[in-house]
Write a protein that binds this DNA or RNA. Structure first.
Lengths: 218, 218
DNA sequence: CTGTTAGCGCCTTCAT
DNA sequence: ATGAAGGCGCTAACAG
């Protein structure tokens, strides 16, 4: 990986501080129009590409959601992948795709990898042999929301989307992404808020209006 | 995202420096067996999970390879996905999957996202409408290797794997991952070395021995 | 064998 | 309206 232009590079060229450049690029209201313009112009000229790696690290957020499926060749799951991917790009999120091959051991390895990578949320269709959900409890313990699809799980503390279609996957994705945003905004409400709404109202748009409290857990 | 245990936490508990802990965990030969043991024991007890985000940032490497396909629903591409995924997990790499929907605009958006995210390599099956490869030249410019699959491209400067099967995808993946490792090791050789070898010899194992120079570009 | 230091690129108070 | 400073968690020289 070559170095690439950094905020610092821009700043030194423009004789201003890194923070001013940073703010300009994120359209901070405290920066003068002229300055913003100058910064943006150069950033464009130099083809500045922000280092998301650094941002992710700093913000402690990866902007990616992980998908753990038993078998990528199964047509049903392909549909799910498709649904998740669509929503993800739309929101500038990444989707990391993995398969457990119906193997509990692999499932575990993958899960740990996802935790290490600090994914913002996980959508999983558990293995046929997965009876012990403690592996997934681990996600919760570190604050990563999990939603199960396709295959129901015994443990009722997990969110579960059963709709056998792209829509289900889409909803699951929306849910996770929104959860992420909530966290960023430091708004602390009942954890199941959005999905509860989804359950009642079904569609994304609905999620935006209503503020009535969730009445029960999934 | 909750904070999670850090090296610092372990270090302060064990009354040693962060670097000693770090080295212990990565089995550095300069650390005494006893120390390593103590560190590992606590790390285990406390369920320490390294923050890959930080590592990626520090090393300027994401350990993920990006896959850009026109249509995830196409059975052929599903096979490719499958092949790439297999190799990826095996090497502890992540695979970020995206689809261009045969739309050049989307293809571009995705490509930029991948650059921002500093993927270590990209495997792409270009859109039917993709005639201008300058978008992908951009990857090269920032040092990200690109390999095209399935659909040939006019621009001969791009690596191309035509094998219509899982093996092809597998080879493409191997190639990218190896390239990544080379870069880390600061070994600079002809860029097309490995893929050239692959072309001549076909299999991963072969890649490991031979050192004869590539005779031409893909 | 272990510790100290420095810094990756970015965002974010807190000054000015 | 802008700048200075600190720090996220980790690795990598370089010192002791």
């Amino acid at each position: 990986m070559k170095k690439g232009i950094t905020l610092k590079d821009l700043a030194s060229r423009l004789n201003m501080s890194v923070s001013t450049v940073s703010k300009s690029l994120s359209n901070d209201s405290a920066i003068s129009a002229l300055t913003k313009e100058r910064v943006k112009k150069l950033a464009d000229e130099w083809n500045y590409i922000p280092n998301e790696s650094a941002r992710h690290f700093k913000l402690n957020k990866s902007f990616t959601i992980g998908l753990i499926l038993p078998d990528l060749l199964d047509p049903f799951f392909v549909l799910a992948i498709n649904g998740v991917e669509d929503i993800a790009v739309e929101k500038d999120y990444n989707m990391t795709l993995t398969q457990s091959h119906e193997d509990v051991k692999k499932e575990e390895k993958i899960a740990n990898l996802m935790i290490s990578n600090r994914v913002d949320g996980v959508i999983v269709a558990v293995t046929k042999g997965t009876v012990d959900m403690s592996l997934f409890q681990k996600f919760k313990r570190v604050g990563i929301p999990v939603v199960c699809i396709a295959r129901g799980v015994s443990d009722a503390t997990f969110s579960y989307v059963s709709a056998n279609n792209v829509d289900g996957a889409a909803k699951a994705t929306e849910f996770l992404i929104k959860r992420g945003h909530k966290r960023i905004a430091h708004i602390s409400g009942p954890k199941t808020l959005h999905i509860s709404q989804a359950r009642y109202q079904g569609y994304e748009n609905a999620l935006k209006k209503a503020k009535f409290p969730p009445t029960r857990n999934w």
